[in-house]
Design a protein around this nucleic acid. Structure first.
Lengths: 157, 157
DNA sequence: GGATTAAATGTAACGTGTTAAGTAAATCAC
DNA sequence: GTGATTTACTTAACACGTTACATTTAATCC
């Protein structure tokens, strides 16, 4: 029995699996950035949170979660960790005591400012190597894919 | 060189973050597939493993890990779970007693055959909605990105 | 104003990602 | 063949992803 016994109807095997391909691409990109984060005991998620906090004097948890694409339960643990390390600070919002306003500490700012140049340099390196135009096209396609999938009401046709 | 813009672009904020964009794209795609897996208490990873085992009568752990892009420690736990549920079976390789050959059970096959059509239908739906050509282009670009990054010796400078 | 509902956040439980360390079997060295 | 190295896999420990549930405070309804 020759190897082409598998009727193509069996199931499209996942050489062409969108989730897997996106996963591998992400992992490949991450491998360029993670080492410099690891040096300072930061995960990718912690790094995103710190960067989000550089954008504003303070933010509540929901804003950070939205900005960083991290779910609230994960963020809750991440903030505890960063707070323990004195990289961020939390205070309850006086106007709405359900909210906790998070801000980055001077120590956190120093850490970001130390890592950011390396991170930026890696990004520029990737941009050069892959091509600025191509990278831009890729962003566009991914954005379109996301939009296409979000505006897709019924998942169960 | 001194492209010292104003403070607003202190650091390229992550609207244009490749890892985040890839993450969001993957999550958007996953949201289309996960519900039908959840119905049968399968994670995306468990599903990949089962599909990989449909491709051959048996496979050792390293092959599965490679095929599914799952690290061995994770796979080890996943196989324990699937074995407990009698969806896969493991036997030690007589030729090399370090290896454990994993195969899918009839029960596992039935589960895959039940889910596969729905999964395939979702995939076709996405292909239609996003466009076959565009999807193909996206695969190409992602493949090129991965290749570009893998063949990039020095990650530092 | 007191009860109800909604919103913001936290906790729990389980599965996975990831690095390091451990175990056992095969291979290599001599 | 004995010992060192390598290979295949597992375990441990910690962080994150995800869903469900709990908690506290705001907003809303009568």
């Amino acid at each position: 029995m020759s190897s082409d016994r598998k009727s193509s109807s069996e199931l499209r095997e996942f050489d062409r699996s969108l989730p897997m391909t996106l996963l591998k691409a992400r992992e490949a990109v991450m491998r360029k950035f993670l080492p410099s984060l690891r040096e300072h005991d930061l995960s990718a998620q912690q790094w995103r949170v710190l960067r989000a906090l550089m954008e504003a004097p303070h933010r509540d948890a929901s804003e950070i979660a939205e900005r960083c694409a991290i779910l609230l339960p994960s963020l809750s643990r991440i903030l505890q960790n960063l707070e323990r390390r004195a990289l961020v600070r939390r205070k309850t919002d006086r106007k709405d005591q359900r909210r906790s306003l998070v801000s980055i500490t001077p120590k956190g700012v120093r850490l970001v400012e130390k890592i950011a140049p390396i991170s930026e340099e890696r990004y520029q390196h990737i941009t050069q190597k892959f091509g600025e135009q191509r990278l831009s096209d890729l962003y566009d396609m991914l954005g379109q894919l996301i939009e296409c999938l979000e505006n897709d009401e019924g998942d169960s046709s």
